[in-house]
């Protein structure tokens, strides 16, 4: 009988290590402890049996299950761009938030949004500290090979604002944005800024003769800084772009699921309602 139980333990230990799902392995480990506890009782060691029963069967299993109880969080980093994704009175709002919430619910993760500065985005996603970049991301926004982007969910334009009699100075542009797809302004004419707000201020102070940005970010910034452009300006559309999300290029699985979810939204027409709610 003792040998039989020991063989059962042997089989259970192999079964634990062959499991693909962690939760199954944890539960099987609990059974393993239970059988060993029975063996202790069998060979005249009731003290060890009781302790193993309390710790090995109940407690260790509980701790593992608590650690596993949720497969973690979908960690989203974003720049704050109304009405895409922003904070108002301490609450998150925006069109992207609704998309991401639905996505997180679909893949059983908890959504966690963190607003960071423009320059931190690349390093955070490269070091795998975050899963998704949001906040009016568009392909070419960050010139990085380590990032792959999803399907677009909304159209936008890349626009250039400049004074009508072009004066002195460079053209302002966001740091790390790659323009090669849209225009052929050489790198020497460009000066890099870390946010659109700074560019608007610099433009009004006359330090630059114009700036390039995407339409969503530009209107958000003009609204937030609450100024009009001082001089007589002209807006030139450089090209169309698709607002989308970005993930680290190692995460093909996450990207596929995100693309599937966006395709579902487009097919069911929900995305239209959602966008018309937020972009009036």
């Amino acid at each position: 009988m003792l040998i039989l139980f020991s063989l059962l333990l042997l089989g259970l230990s192999v079964a634990v290590l062959l499991q693909n799902r962690l939760l199954n392995a944890v539960i099987l480990l609990g059974v393993f402890s239970l059988v060993s506890s029975v063996i202790y009782f069998w060979v005249g060691a009731p003290d060890v049996a009781v302790t193993e029963g309390a710790i090995g069967v109940a407690f260790v299993t509980f701790i593992y299950v608590l650690a596993l109880s949720d497969q973690g969080k979908l960690h989203v980093i974003a720049e704050e761009v109304p009405p895409f994704l922003f904070q108002e009175k301490g609450e998150l709002q925006g069109a992207e938030l609704e998309i991401l919430e639905g996505f997180a619910e679909k893949i059983n993760l908890e959504l966690e949004v963190e607003f960071v500065g423009h320059q931190e985005l690349t390093s955070l996603i490269g070091g795998r500290r975050a899963d998704v970049i949001a906040g009016a991301y568009f392909p070419g926004f960050l010139a990085q090979e380590e990032i792959s982007h999803s399907k677009g969910y909304n159209q936008g334009q890349l626009a250039k604002i400049h004074r009508t009699p072009p004066g002195e100075g460079d053209i302002g542009i966001l740091a790390e944005t790659d323009l090669s797809e849209f225009t052929e302004i050489s790198e020497e004419d460009l000066s890099r800024f870390s946010s659109v707000d700074e560019m608007v201020t610099a433009y009004n102070e006359g330090r630059i003769r114009g700036f390039i940005s995407d339409s969503g970010r530009m209107s958000a910034s003009l609204y937030r800084v609450n100024t009009t452009l001082r001089d007589k300006s002209e807006i030139v559309t450089l090209g169309e772009l698709d607002y989308s999300f970005a993930v680290s290029s190692g995460e093909e699985e996450l990207l596929d699921r995100l693309n599937d979810y966006l395709a579902d939204l487009t097919r069911s027409g929900k995305i239209g309602e959602l966008l018309s709610d937020h972009f009036r």
Binding site: D47, G53, A54, A58, F59
Partner: peptide, 11 residues
């Protein structure tokens, strides 16, 4: 009897 402080504390 069987039991002991370890098991008692954990329970």
């Amino acid at each position: 009897g069987p039991g002991g402080g370890f098991a008692g504390g954990v329970i």
